[in-house]
């Protein structure tokens, strides 16, 4: 079937291609952002960084009078500890689900982040406050709350597979497939959605919104793939996943790079990863000096949906 399991992913693709010392580049989102700025990638604007308990006291100044923002742990993983504020109502801050938070509750969330509650291995962390992406219309139409993101998995800089993750009522605004979000496979050549799964089973319509999720053309597809390949170049990681969101006004923004991308993407696409990874390895051996554009062309041509 060509399906890649965790053991194979780790032993064949992660360990040989991702040297340990590169991990911090992507595990620390502040460093990733610095890199992205150097490489002229579009990223959500950082409003401020909360580095110490003292900073939590002046949170209100960092937030200013912004209506919406996102607070994230710099070393978080799997979307843990991400707090999204979409609006304000008097002295309350509103989450996408409509829950109201006071400034004190937001401060407490920040001090949890600082203490390392959401970071890998529980090490001390910093919280960043950044621009909340306003997803493009075409994406909000197929997601129950939450902002859908696009994941592109790459080996040696060749995009091998991509998927769109959209929230459902069950996943509560989150994009994790095992929590009930839907995974939508994307044709690498065109950026059109080709297949969708919910809890491992193929679907055509969004389970809550009842709108078709297959056959949708994603905007800015060229730019998205371009961002992905640039992420490989700037981090040096051989095997990685790049998360991108499409902002209505700003276009595609790079959200984060993941050095241990999961395996659900092959379920969403209905294709075993091995079928994509092996040609990428061959190509890398036969054409070790492929340029940025050649890599893109190769992937789009070779991995086009039939």
């Amino acid at each position: 079937m060509g399906v890649v399991g965790i053991n194979m992913r780790n032993a064949r693709y992660l360990l040989p291609n991702n040297p340990r010392w590169l991990y911090d580049l992507v595990d620390n989102k502040l460093r990733t952002k610095d890199l992205a700025v150097e490489h002229h990638l579009a990223i959500p604007e950082t409003y401020g960084v909360v580095r110490s308990p003292h900073d939590t006291a002046r949170m209100d100044r960092l937030i200013g009078d912004r209506d919406s923002f996102v607070i994230k742990p710099a070393r978080g993983s799997g979307g843990k500890g991400v707090l999204v504020i979409v609006a304000r109502e008097g002295k309350y801050f509103l989450k996408p689900s409509g829950v109201k938070l006071t400034l004190d509750e937001i401060r407490h969330h920040c001090s949890n982040i600082l203490a390392g509650l959401f970071s890998l291995g529980g090490r001390r962390d910093v919280a960043q406050i950044e621009y909340r992406v306003h997803p493009a219309r075409v994406l909000t139409e197929i997601s129950f709350q939450g902002a859908p993101d696009i994941r592109v998995v790459m080996l040696h800089g060749y995009p091998v597979m991509a998927m769109l993750r959209a929230a459902t009522r069950e996943s509560d605004g989150r994009a994790n497939l095992h929590q009930g979000a839907i995974g939508i496979g994307i044709d690498l050549a065109t950026g059109k959605t080709i297949r969708a799964i919910h809890h491992g089973h193929p679907i055509q319509l969004h389970p809550d919104l009842k709108v078709p999720v297959v056959g949708i053309q994603l905007p800015h597809w060229d730019a998205i793939l371009d961002i992905a390949v640039t992420c490989h170049e700037m981090t040096g990681l051989g095997y990685l996943g790049v998360d991108v969101m499409i902002d209505e006004a700003l276009g595609p923004l790079m959200i984060e790079v993941n050095a241990r991308p999961g395996l659900a993407i092959q379920l969403a696409n209905g294709v075993g990863l091995l079928r994509r990874l092996e040609p990428a390895v061959e190509r890398c051996k036969s054409h070790p000096h492929d340029t940025h554009q050649q890599k893109l062309d190769f992937s789009r041509k070779t991995f086009a949906a039939k």
Partner: peptide
Amino acid sequence: YRLSELFRFRDFKEA
């Protein structure tokens, strides 16, 4: 594969 993955990928059919 891990045993649990055989279960996880049991419905996998290539498109």
